[in-house]
């Protein structure tokens, strides 16, 4: 998409410092409450550690992932909050045939259920696997984190941010990036040398700071090029190809039909020429 000119620096962004996360899952609860999402049947140890529920779903827009690891012979936990990354140039918005997804000027990527036809292309396209489907329904729609768009429009912070006691900072994208870089500089031994979300998928509105290497925590490696540009490279050729194929075939068939007509006329003339001398003789 040709969104290079858009300024994302004032977008509202999350800075999630996983080294400060206590794994209390207050964000999960706040999210369920604000979005009025149903509780899910789970077991106590449904994923790694106390990870619960086992997966994101139509009822769970955010969740704390647990990772066990060993440090100096001690068992330790690492946590990471899974949620919509609110990409600068979102793949879901570019692939949706009816434009049901929209990147708002405030930052969140929001979804319009009225428009959605339920094709699930967004689920194929999203590099983070965020959009979920209402599989339980006969006429399902897509569900995902809204970045609490309705709250931030009224000047409030997202529900998960207000609930978090330690780890989430919220503010302008540039300010959050600066803050992240400041922390990394001040305590280099505390942080892994990469801000996840700064360049992923062309840049997102969620930044993660971690202690462990990203792949160990289960962060997906994602291309740093905005995903819509991959399909646009092909799609932008569409009008040209349509005209080229149509034009070439029109020209070709005109030429071939003309050849045929000339051949037939030639034949006709030859027949006439054969007849004419005879008529002349009779006169």
């Amino acid at each position: 998409m040709s969104t290079q000119t858009i300024d994302y620096s004032k977008n509202k962004a999350f800075l999630i410092d996983t080294t400060k996360c206590t794994g209390c899952r207050g964000c999960q609860v706040a999210c369920k409450q604000w979005n009025q999402l149903k509780a899910e049947q789970t077991t106590f140890f449904s994923g790694e550690g106390y990870q619960n529920p086992p997966a994101m779903s139509e009822y769970t827009f955010t969740r704390i992932k647990f990772r066990d690891y060993q440090k100096d012979g001690q068992n330790e936990f690492a946590f990471y909050k899974e949620m919509c990354m609110h990409c600068n140039d979102p793949a879901c918005a570019s692939v949706c045939p009816v434009g049901a997804f929209k990147k708002t000027k405030e930052g969140p990527v929001i979804y319009d259920a009225q428009r959605c036809i339920g094709c699930r292309f967004c689920m194929i396209a999203c590099p983070f696997g965020i959009p979920k489907y209402e599989w339980s329904k006969a006429f399902p729609l897509v569900r995902k984190c809204t970045g609490c768009y309705s709250r931030i429009k009224e000047g409030l912070e997202p529900a998960c941010v207000t609930a978090c006691p330690t780890a989430i900072s919220y503010g302008g994208r540039d300010a959050m990036l600066k803050e992240a870089e400041r922390r990394m500089k001040e305590k280099p031994e505390r942080y892994y040398k990469k801000i996840y979300g700064k360049e992923e998928a062309g840049g997102t509105c969620i930044f993660y700071l971690t202690h462990q290497p990203l792949d160990e925590l289960g962060f997906k490696p994602v291309t740093s090029r905005a995903l819509p540009s991959y399909t646009w490279d092909a799609l932008r050729l569409v009008p040209g190809i349509f005209l080229t194929v149509g034009g070439t075939l029109s020209a070709l068939s005109w030429f071939n039909h003309r050849k045929e007509r000339v051949r037939r006329e030639e034949e006709q003339r030859r027949q006439n020429a054969d007849q004419q001398p005879k008529e002349g003789d009779q006169q």
């Binding site: 045939p97 339920g118 094709c119 092909a234």
Partner: peptide, 24 residues
């Protein structure tokens, strides 16, 4: 059959998104 909202299939005719291969 595969669409979640088949009754809204006509939306592609109204809400154009030329960036979507699915629209095309």
């Amino acid at each position: 059959l595969d669409l979640g909202q088949p009754h809204k299939g006509w939306h592609t005719l109204v809400y154009w998104n030329v960036h979507s291969p699915m629209f095309e």
